[in-house]
């Protein structure tokens, strides 16, 4: 191939990529940032100012909601890792060759079911007239119906449920690549189960752990359906605030500012996670 032809084909392949990233990712975000700096001073008259951000800082309910969203999402990430790691380890290292594929598939099937249907299922199980409450009454364990919905524990549980698969998939693929002999060697050198886990397995699985944590955290902090449907209207989730500003109050400037704050916040947490674990975005997320 001549170098001119090579250059031409490179250019042709670069065009769709550039259009996609520029028109749908970069420009909209620049536009959103610009919008967030506008302040309405009269109908159809705008001025550049930091009023929307000032509003966010001075109104405790807004940044409390953000901190709450972040805190709950960190908890969800931690729980998803705690619950998902043994499952991933079982699939990658303990299960036989045959059952391995089947178990992995079982893990993936709920991945392809919409958030909405999963939340709907939980509602049917957990509400006052739901399956669990009815079953407990029928068994005589409780006297009256119990409402399991609309509390923080249920929101956390629902979020863990929604995201745990995104933790398991990258973990299985990293643990799969690990040589069993490494684990054997650890035991032969006199390590007990805990030491082997801490000194050999976890360091090896680190890229998978970080990838899983990043995706899970972003999904949790950016989720909308699960907190609203399982936590009720007062679940105070930050995406709900954004929706409120954009759709209910039609205050796009303030909504854009909130969106930007969420983006900065989640990016910061992801960046911090990558720095602390010594990984990069392409060594983790791209691989899953």
């Amino acid at each position: 191939m001549t170098s001119d032809a090579k250059k031409l084909s490179l250019l042709l392949l670069f065009i769709p990529f550039a259009l996609w990233i520029a028109l749908l990712i970069v420009l909209p975000h620049i536009g959103m940032f610009e919008l967030s700096l506008k302040e309405k001073i009269a109908p159809r008259v705008y001025e550049y100012s930091l009023a929307n951000y000032k509003n966010f800082v001075t109104e405790p309910i807004y940044w409390n909601t953000l901190l709450r969203t972040g805190g709950v999402s960190l908890l969800v990430t931690f729980l998803a890792l705690l619950i998902g790691f043994p499952v991933a380890y079982y699939i990658a290292k303990v299960a036989g060759k045959r059952s391995k594929g089947a178990l992995f598939l079982l893990c993936l099937i709920p991945l392809w079911v919409s958030d909405l249907i999963r939340a709907f299922g939980w509602i049917l199980l957990l509400r006052e007239t739901g399956v669990i409450s009815t079953a407990l009454q029928a068994s005589g364990l409780i006297d009256g119906p119990i409402e399991f919905l609309y509390n923080d524990a249920t929101v956390v549980m629902g979020l863990v449920y929604t995201v745990v698969l995104f933790m398991i998939v990258p973990l299985v693929s990293t643990l799969d690549g690990m040589d069993n002999e490494m684990i054997e060697a650890g035991y032969n050198l006199g390590g007990n189960g805990f030491t082997v886990l801490r000194r050999i397995i976890i360091p090896y699985a680190m890229p998978g752990i970080v990838a899983g944590c990043i995706v899970v955290f972003m999904l949790s902090a950016g989720s909308y359906l699960t907190p609203i449907l399982l936590g009720g209207k007062n679940s105070s989730w930050f995406t709900e605030q954004i929706y409120d500003q954009f759709i209910t109050r039609y205050n796009w400037e303030s909504g854009a500012a909130f969106g930007f704050v969420l983006l900065i916040f989640t990016s910061f947490v992801v960046w911090l996670g990558l720095k602390l674990s010594g990984q990069t975005l392409s060594s983790t997320v791209a691989k899953s």
Partner: peptide, 10 residues
């Protein structure tokens, strides 16, 4: 890694 809500509003 951009929350879906933000892609939507932007």
């Amino acid at each position: 890694v951009i929350p879906g809500v933000i892609l939507g509003i932007s």
